[in-house]
Amino acid sequence: MSDTLQNAFMKEIQENEAIIHKVIGLYVDVEEDKRDLYQEVLLQAWKSYPNFKRASKFSTWLYKLSLNTVFSFTKKVRKNTTQEITAKNIPMVMPTKDYEILYWIIKKLNKVDRMIMSLHLDGYKNTEIAEILGIDSNHLNVKIHRIKGNVISSFKKIHNE
């Protein structure tokens, strides 16, 4: 990678680093795995960056890459010690703050719904969400509406308990 390209990469990564943390934080709970994954996403981004054709925004590209890396990582190590965040291993202590409740609810969703919801809440358009997740955008509106409905009703339920 040339120096100019390397500088551009570093700048864009620094600006969008939160995406990597977000994707990892939503799918992995073990600190050691988080560290490994963070390195892995950076490495994969570094390797793929020269081929990034700018057909989409850098953040969209990084989201997609982070997601693919995290999914293949969790698939690879699922049989070993790593625990993916699922409803089963979320602590049963009920959170009290709104953002903690939201985190708790989102983590209870299946892995695709979890990412749809987080991308939607991050303000991504449906076409971008479809591109990142590699799914058909036709039914995305309905899907988002359904997931949001479930999240809101869970929110209400927890607050009213």
């Binding site: 990892i24 953002y99 903690e100 809440l121 929110f155």
Partner: peptide
Amino acid sequence: EIDLKNAWKDLSSKRFENKIL
């Protein structure tokens, strides 16, 4: 949705934007 977005914003800044690693 506004509440969700606010909660998400808090969540992002508290859990994801701080260096968790």
